[in-house]
């Protein structure tokens, strides 16, 4: 390429003027300066590390996230928690509390957070029974939280109902009187029944008052005992039982009203089905969680106590 008239040719570095002043100082190799800079850098680094190590502040976030009212060692205190705490403590809406009240609650919450963090540093989860119980309870609840709060599909519930249909029936109720006769009356009572007459027509029976008016089946079973209840549940309203020999005499049951349990339709039993379904799922989940934790844990036990 030809250089035209009036075009200045490029100049090389060699043609430039030698540096002067501080430029000349920087351009010159100086061992003492290099050592001094190295020492300053090392001391500066050590100082920063020392402040970070002994200042115990860690890395801090300068700004406060919009949803938080405070950060304590980067652990947030939610504004919504703060508002709830203020309202719960003073029993009035947040807007009606004073600045002093709000300030007190916030300081209390910061104090609590500091103490919790200190408690963790001191290892309370390893040593304090109350802390350990609270942690176990919290984890148990957390494990089943999804099952507890999510509703299964209707088809799953219906299938569960079909599998456990026998468990869903209305509560049976009965009003029954338990008459007790002396053991010597057995023959007369049997003769009465053989003649086709109700056993309770025999004189001398004493109401044991074991039952108390209309009762649910389960209550009548507790009051009468298994044997008498089994005899009572098959009696129709108005019927009396044949004589039943018991250690304390001969019993005759008179049924005033008997409404046996009626199987419930899925629609009627749905809520109970949902409770049972969730309980079963929670138990399953608790079991599998414990198995998983045991599998991944390194547990060394005294063989004398392991089956």
């Amino acid at each position: 390429m030809m250089l035209g008239a009036g075009v200045k040719p490029p100049t090389s570095a060699a043609n430039e003027d030698p540096p002067a002043g501080w430029r000349a100082y920087l351009a010159r190799v100086d061992e003492r300066r290099a050592f001094a800079l190295l020492a300053i850098g090392a001391i500066g680094g050590l100082l920063i590390a020392g402040v970070g190590l002994f200042g115990a502040k860690g890395t801090t976030m300068r700004g406060l996230p919009a949803e938080d009212v405070a950060l304590v060692n980067q652990q947030p205190i939610l504004t919504s928690d703060f508002v709830s705490q203020v309202e719960t403590t003073y029993g009035v809406p947040f807007a009606q509390t004073t600045q002093a009240q709000k300030s007190k609650i916030l300081n209390d919450m910061i104090r609590e957070e500091l103490y919790v963090q200190r408690g963790l540093e001191l290892g309370f989860p390893s040593s304090d029974p109350d802390t350990r119980n609270a942690l176990v309870a919290a984890v148990e609840q957390q494990v089943v939280a999804d099952v507890t709060t999510q509703n299964p599909a209707e088809s799953e519930l219906a299938a569960y109902y079909q599998r456990h249909r026998d468990a869903y029936a209305s509560e049976g109720v009965m009003t029954v009187t338990d008459l007790r006769y002396p053991a010597s009356s057995l023959g007369a009572l049997q003769a009465l029944v053989a003649a086709g007459r109700p056993a309770n027509q025999a004189p001398g029976g004493v109401d044991t008052k074991r039952t108390n008016g209309e009762e649910f089946y389960f209550a009548a079973k507790i009051h009468l005992g298994d044997r008498l209840f089994d005899a009572a549940r098959i009696l129709a309203t108005g019927q009396s039982s044949p004589p039943i020999v018991m250690p304390d005499g001969v019993h005759v049951l008179v049924m005033q009203h008997n409404a046996p349990p009626v199987p419930l339709s899925f629609a009627d039993a749905r809520e109970q089905v949902l409770v049972d379904y969730k309980r079963e799922a929670e138990n399953r989940l608790q079991g599998s969680t414990e198995r998983f934790l045991r599998d991944k844990a390194d547990i060394i036990t005294d063989k004398a106590y392991v089956k």
């Binding site: 939610l78 919504s80 508002v83 709830s84 309202e87 809406p93 947040f94 609840q141 957390q142 089943v144 939280a145 507890t148 709060t149």
Partner: peptide
């Protein structure tokens, strides 16, 4: 604030 608390932490949610 009360509705927000209920949504945040739920009811018998664990």
């Amino acid at each position: 604030s009360e509705i927000e608390h209920t949504i945040t932490y739920g009811i018998r949610s664990g």
